[in-house]
Amino acid sequence: MALAASLSHNQIFLGTLAALSIAIICVFAAPEKRGPALRIYGLLALAVIIIRLAFRVVFNNADSSLETALTLPQVNITILGQTTHYFGAVPQLSLIEGLTDGLRLAAIILGVAMANTVANPRKLLRSTPSALYEVATAAAVAINLAPQLLVSLQRVRKARALRGTSTSLRNLGGLLIPVLEDSIQRSLDLAASMDSRGFGRRGVMSRRTAAMSRLASLFGIVGLAIAGYLLLATAVAAWITVLLLVLALGLFYTSVRLSAIHSIRTRLTIEKRRLADYLVLLASTLVVIVLAVNQIPGVGTNGWLK
């Protein structure tokens, strides 16, 4: 959905996306996570819109040819012989552009918020193919570290306040050292625990196959990243993007197949896909499909999304 938001310029569409994200958080997030998540991400999204608009109002390059929405007294400030204008006539179009920009960012933020609140990075681990297992583990651990970092930070800040010292910039290092020490210690503990319980065991696999599997997954990831960039940049012909995407996915598939043959890991199936999961999945896929159609030349360029 965040991907969709970054591609679109339509205010109604963006508004719908944001509303959908909020709705999903409200319905499916764990009750104790819902409140803080909505507050933090909601405020962030709102702040982004307001800042975007404020920028347009303050720094507008008054173009008299455009219809003016509101007129403020213009402030001219001259620094080193350069005069800059602030406030003054604000064109309607400029405001709308600002609003759209803000909405876009807000929709992206809310989309990420939804994924973060509803989905659980550790659950992600359960549904990754075994070739990607190691990459996914690293990612899940990294994602998990963020909330732990916040907890440590709060604890250390509270402790530092006891010493009466302010939490000013001078003390930032002092604040960070215990927090970093904490999180590094946690990661090491987790790594030790996973290793002690057999993480990293594998069946017999020849060196060549192992190397091939690694290479395939590496190129796959790089390919996907480039394809993703091209999709957003849209400066290159569409067929190159599609070709790269197919190639990357193919490499990925090979690496998954190669590793799966030699993996000894088993799975306990616990996840019953709930209605909620299906809905989230459906909504996201739909959006992406609509956009993909929109990207196809001739259909989308002048389509309703632009």
Binding site: R122, L190, A192, S193, M194, R197, T266, L268
Partner: peptide, 22 residues
């Protein structure tokens, strides 16, 4: 600090999954 998963059930299963128990 040493838990790898989220729930008791998954945590109990984790080690066995790594060792390839059916």
């Amino acid at each position: 600090g040493a838990f790898v998963t989220d729930t008791v059930l998954e945590e109990l299963a984790y080690g066995m999954e790594q060792l390839g128990i059916s």
